[in-house]
Design a protein around this nucleic acid. Structure first.
Lengths: 210, 210
DNA sequence: AATTCCGGAGAACAGTTGTTAACTGGATGA
DNA sequence: TCATCCAGTTAACAACTGTTCTCCGGAATT
């Protein structure tokens, strides 16, 4: 795999990445369904027709952005759920990790939150599929936990989805509070931690009722 | 207050409602930030300039749609949370009510889910404010429950937000499954019910840990 | 009955949009 | 070295956008 990319392909990937970056920046203040092809090429500093060398349409670009925003997130999710330690420690670490991710990639988080229910079908589907993959991975991690003894597959999956949705809600709240005073950010952290704690308690007593 | 609206004002409200209806229909396949003024007037069958007699901009129209979609929902939420009966009955009734609402007003639900994180700031804020009002109302309903004895205000509010967010997630899932086979809809119902059950269990044992 | 009010129409404005076709020039492979 | 490839350019297309100004005709007010 030490095949150095030719000058040509390297240049192509470079401008492709420029398209993704420019689009992500433009999407800070609008939705994908209003993102114009010319708008993006103008931001990149390239002729409008150059767009077609990389994407069929802006919807196509959107799907590529989904991969960029969520594709590299899988290892993080796995390690987050599977970290050992006290339940309280794990919650604190999960919230901390979400916070850091939002701070590091705010535009990615905004894009996913916005387009998850947005006006472009292929993008919605791409996000839905990726989130389903996340849920499946979380489920297998949960299944490895001794606490999961006696749980049905359905119940494990519903808990996994609950965690994934909660993760997204929390990320979105952190995003809104990004430029807010420290006190507000702390409020979000505490509420997210308590909600996770309540879910954790519900999980502990799930089998009590039989 | 028995002042019958003049022919003039009545006609104005009528076309205003026509604007709202047409916009809601057009927003089934796009986001508000890509909704054009002329597009709406064309759908209503009216001159483009007529738009300005009712709204300053499409963002303004969006805020009006938020009021229409969420404004009339408050009594329902109150009664949903405060219905008496077994915990299991209450959960079943809540899920049933969400399902019925989605079936009755799918376009409204879609609009809220889409624009909650959408590209138009004033609309996002309007939705956020309304949802905060919902959470506050749910909180006061929860406080009336004997089960809430010993709960802090902060904890009650975090639980209320958890319920509100869960309601929205569930509504969005019902929306996606609207035209799906009955089996899929039933899957959504069951998962939503179980998630509410887990939250309810967590609520029951919240004070155990001190 | 005369006057004011006002929701909507009409025309025109400069700018924007997506998409097509034919072209250029440097990297690529024979 | 020479022919081929292909990312990006240029030019042009009809169609669309938000907004302004002027006007109309029926309702509302006096």
């Amino acid at each position: 795999m030490s095949h150095t990319l030719g000058i040509r392909q390297a240049q192509k990937q470079k401008t492709r990445q420029a398209f993704l970056d420019a689009a992500l920046a433009l999407l800070e203040e609008q939705s994908l369904s209003s993102l114009g092809l010319r708008e993006v090429t103008r931001a990149v500093g390239v002729a409008p027709t150059a767009f077609y060398r990389h994407f069929r349409s802006t919807a196509d670009l959107g799907v590529a952005l989904v991969d960029e925003a969520l594709g590299s997130l899988h290892p993080m999710v796995r390690t987050t759920v599977s970290t050992t330690g006290d339940s309280e420690e794990r919650i604190a670490r999960a919230v901390e990790l979400i916070d850091q991710h939002v701070t590091a990639f705010p535009a990615h988080v905004r894009f996913i939150a916005r387009e998850r229910h947005g006006g472009v079908q292929p993008v919605r589907e791409a996000i839905r599929d990726q989130l389903a993959r996340f849920a499946a991975e979380v489920k297998t991690e949960l299944a490895n936990d001794p606490e999961a003894a006696g749980w049905s597959d359905d119940d494990l999956l519903m808990l996994a989805h609950l965690y994934v949705d909660q993760m997204l809600i929390t990320a979105s709240l952190f995003l809104e509070a990004l430029e807010a005073p420290r006190a507000e950010r702390e409020r979000v952290r505490q509420r997210a931690a308590r909600q996770l704690r309540l879910i954790s308690i519900g999980r502990d007593h799930w089998l009590d009722a039989e």
